[in-house]
Design a protein around this nucleic acid. Sequence first.
DNA 1: GAACTTCGTTCATTGAATAAACTATGACCG
DNA 2: CGGTCATAGTTTATTCAATGAACGAAGTTC
Lengths: 389, 389
Amino acid sequence: MMNGDDALDTQASVRRANLRRALQLVFRTPGEATRAGISRATGLTAATASSLVAELIEQRLVVEGPQAASTGGKRATTLSVDAEHHLILVVVIRPTDARLALLALDGAEVEVRRITYAAPERDRVLDAAIAAVGAEYGSRLLVAAAQLPGTTDGRRVLESVQLDWHDVPLAERWERELHIPVLLVNDVDAEAIAESAMEEASAGYRLFIHIGGGIGAAVTLDGELAPGPRDRAGEIGHVQVEFGAAARSCRCGRAGCLEAAASMTAMLGDGFDDSLDDDAIVALAATADEELLAEGARTLARTIKLIAAVLDAEEVVIGGPARVLGDRYLRLVQQEIDYTATGTVNVPVRYADGAASITTGVAQVALTHALGVRWSPAQLRAASASRPE
Amino acid sequence: MMNGDDALDTQASVRRANLRRALQLVFRTPGEATRAGISRATGLTAATASSLVAELIEQRLVVEGPQAASTGGKRATTLSVDAEHHLILVVVIRPTDARLALLALDGAEVEVRRITYAAPERDRVLDAAIAAVGAEYGSRLLVAAAQLPGTTDGRRVLESVQLDWHDVPLAERWERELHIPVLLVNDVDAEAIAESAMEEASAGYRLFIHIGGGIGAAVTLDGELAPGPRDRAGEIGHVQVEFGAAARSCRCGRAGCLEAAASMTAMLGDGFDDSLDDDAIVALAATADEELLAEGARTLARTIKLIAAVLDAEEVVIGGPARVLGDRYLRLVQQEIDYTATGTVNVPVRYADGAASITTGVAQVALTHALGVRWSPAQLRAASASRPE
DNA sequence: GAACTTCGTTCATTGAATAAACTATGACCG
DNA sequence: CGGTCATAGTTTATTCAATGAACGAAGTTC
């Protein structure tokens, strides 16, 4: 397709880059983009814009829509994302079940399959499900991405305690089956991208912190994961933040870990579980020990401050189950950050958007990989609103 | 010249990118690069490589050297950096003095001027020195970069306590005088780049920590400062790391700051001063309170761990005056990092290279800006060895 | 209805890389 | 020593993508 190296050494790469720019405009303003608009926005001539659009239509990435209202001359032909042909396969892998979703290019879920398994047969069942999707949708598949708890370099699962996978070349295996690019994404990274997809891309760093039974972090820049090797990035759950007598023991075997001090379990007690729904968490939080909550908030805030200062982060987003803890908790975190902030480093904290779904994040990563393009927040909201369920 | 927008919309941008790639190869392997070698390394045809080299020679960026030994056929003409024409102006600004250095493209210092001033007349004296350099070297100047303590967006000095500058548009002012691009660089960033220039570029994040009377951090990726807006990045000196009764008061007026706990002044007492030379620091450290040193090392290590974990940093480099504290201190830091490291996040710490000079770092930033090119560590070592002094 | 705007296409031209033929120079080898 | 081969580098025609200018189509304004 259009993916791959932005080596920009030859005319072909210029063409690729301009195709991407044109396609990005259609993705950003679906139904409003026009050939003339692309020409204006990119600085390319009208002739070139037309040529690019023609190629995108032929590749079944873009379709023409109705004529736009006149702005004083001939009416423009609107352009939208072609939602009828290509499909993105999103796989969300969890210890005992998985979710396979097929998304159209407009972000709408075309089909969802759920599978369950016991750990020993997980690989077999998963592979079979992948093969089934491949057999049914074949050439319509554009790209696939799998989200999983654990560390990954995008091609292999390096280490996943929850799945008991160690150095598994999953991408390669599924690529042989599906004949499309497959990439692997860490769960918190996907969550961060989903959140970021719900906002206009900003030029600064955004620090995303997932707080549930565990704690993980991800850094985004301009709507994408911060560049560089991300194999083990964001693994801050078991960094020591409490010392000496104050260090609480952690499920990992050590003591003083951030998770032991600031996770949902630390703040709400063993009654917390990652499988609880939002209402149950709210109910549990209502009965929580104020002091434990405050302590968790403080410890988290102190951690955040350091990282935000080094990166000059413009925003911190708290996601995961902690997202429903409400103003009380958020204020505690923000206060502790502000309290000692130097004035120059004074980063705002907020909760993640409830509308952001993991599936969206994974799909966005896949889309970026395959086409180098981002959905517009508006498009995603529309797509999730029209979700068949 | 060749700098500026990588707008990548037209053939011209392809040409620019390829010129940069060719030039980079000459910078990396001066005296060994050849047209045929460039062709092989870039994948471009020999004809294109020849054309690129011809243009670089005409621009006085590259010169031909002697014939290389035959590798079984016609002997190749070697290519080197043209050190005779273009000059890079590096300005290191400090509260009561400044250093203006003119560097050739091979990294050698062609001329150095020192000026001193009292604070009230600083602007006037500096501007006059800049004007004098401009008048003398005129069109040979390629680019200028100024290094200073304080925050900057590259164009303006946002805030510098040491210089008592607040939102000063220095780059614009000097550009009007010199008619070349001028950029401003934070002092710790320059130090980090200098260090990074002494190593082969690596794909991972490198965390650089300057420890002197103050503490600052910088993150490099692939030999350059991490992308994104860096206006206030790395300002970690006054993040609170000690709390309650343990929090020591800081010169900034608050208490518990990292500087108050882990700076050279915190560890060695008021006898420390940033103007001390290496020998004096070593002597001072020999009489230091072991416990204060250990405490500083511990606090620093705990700070480092968090940041390294979020970034998945591959290396931490300690620079500034602390660089001469010796094995004792370094081991304390490394031990505290290893002690609670999760095994996955276990980042090595080392001291900065003594050969790296601030001037080199500033010049490297300027060179990257102007030509998109990095010096090779070997080239820099050769240049600094041949320094007239 | 005439003048003007805006959209989009067609076509000759430009700039950069390519492919292939060619020259130059040196190594290797019988 | 002369022939063959390998490597370096140049020349020339070709290809590909974007440009610029002309132009047709469709709509608005007066």
